Amino acid sequence: MILTVTPNPSVDHTLEIAALTRGDVLRVQRSGLHAGGKGVNVSRVLRRNGQATRAVLPVGGPEGGRLTALLAEHGVVTVPVPIAAAIRGNVTIAESDGTTTKLNVPGPVLAEDEGAALLAAVAAELALGPRWLVAAGSLPSGLPADFYARLARIAADSGVPMAVDSSGAPLEIAALAGGIDLLKPNHEELAGLIGRDLPTIGDVAEAAREVQRWGNSTILVTLGGHGALLADAEHTWWAGAPPPVPRSTVGAGDCALAGYLSGDAPPAERLRRAVAWGTAAVTLPGTTVPGPDDIDPGAVGVVTDPDPALVVKEL
């Protein structure tokens, strides 16, 4: 079982339109309602592909009830932590050419005792011995910026490896504190973490090595339409697939993380699986997650210790 925690979940309203034009009245071609948040997305795609998962998340207000109901429809077991404020309702606008615009609400303000209850809920689930803990997404107001670093200490005490997928201060603090088994920044997040541009694969690999030297184990860097790079203690690997016809990029990185964690295999094969799951997600509308029939690992090429001079945007 893979345990996820999403401190700032949402209900995502997805609107598909031909093209977004400011100031116009636009006709919506399709609309949908999905459970959202990075850790929630990881649980959804794992469950869609037959993996056992449990999702810890704060729940409050009408959207909280919708969120747990949506997850139940997909067979995701939730561990709700009641909060007084309402969780977010976000809007995703998906254009026919694959361009995605997200309107994200800040989210609730958690009281100190609610944050403590969220930590306690994760600790109780860790006692059940999951294969991984995935801590993902932004932090709502009221939670300390070192929340993921605190979770990492609890996970280490429980003997459970932890993956972190976040951005800004929560990612930086967790990475600098060290002890993270898998960090999954995207290209821009890694550049922000290191404080410099990363135009080549060599730059990305060296940045990943620098983050490892802070005391972290494995770095999985998603590169958008240019594949992904994996760095462990011995090697780096790059993997990519033919660019699909995109419908929505929302949640693609979450699906890639889930693919990597979904089963044991040599690093190159786990990376292949990650890129296959992420690529499949891009072909689906809104925050729809791919199932087995959507995923094609055979279309993904993997290169060990790629040429450091390769330009990321040309891959």
Score class of each variant (00 low, 15 high):
I2A: 02
L3I: 12
V5M: 01
P7M: 00
H13K: 14
H13A: 14
H13V: 15
L15V: 06
I17Q: 13
L20I: 13
D24K: 11
S31K: 12
S31I: 09
H34Y: 04
G37A: 06
V40E: 06
N41E: 12
R44T: 12
V45T: 15
L46Q: 01
R47T: 15
G50N: 11
G50C: 02
Q51I: 05
T53K: 07
L57P: 13
P58K: 00
V59T: 14
G60W: 03
G60R: 02
P62M: 03
G65W: 13
T68N: 09
A69Q: 12
V77M: 07
V81H: 02
V81T: 11
I83D: 00
I83M: 06
A85Y: 01
A85E: 10
N90K: 05
I93C: 09
I93L: 14
A94D: 14
S96D: 15
D97F: 13
K102N: 09
L103E: 09
V105C: 11
P106Y: 02
P106G: 06
D113M: 08
G115Y: 00
L119Q: 14
A120Y: 01
V122N: 01
V122S: 02
A124D: 08
A124N: 08
G129V: 15
V134R: 08
L139M: 04
S141M: 09
R150E: 03
R150N: 03
I154D: 14
P161K: 01
V164N: 00
V164Q: 01
D165V: 12
A169L: 10
A169N: 02
A169I: 01
L171Y: 01
G179M: 02
I180A: 00
L182K: 05
K184L: 05
H187I: 11
H187D: 10
E189D: 09
L190A: 06
A191M: 04
A191S: 14
R196E: 13
R196Q: 13
D197M: 08
P199D: 08
G202E: 09
D203W: 04
A205H: 01
V211F: 03
G215R: 11
N216C: 06
T218D: 12
G225H: 01
A228T: 08
L229D: 08
L230Q: 03
A231Y: 04
H235V: 09
W237V: 10
P244S: 07
V250S: 08
V250R: 07
G251H: 05
C255P: 15
A256C: 05
Y260M: 02
A265T: 11
E269H: 01
R270G: 03
R272K: 13
V275Y: 00
V275A: 04
A281W: 01
T283V: 11
L284D: 02
P285N: 08
T288I: 06
V289H: 00
G291I: 04
P292W: 00
P292V: 13
D294I: 12
P297V: 13
P297M: 06
V303N: 05
V303A: 05
D305C: 11
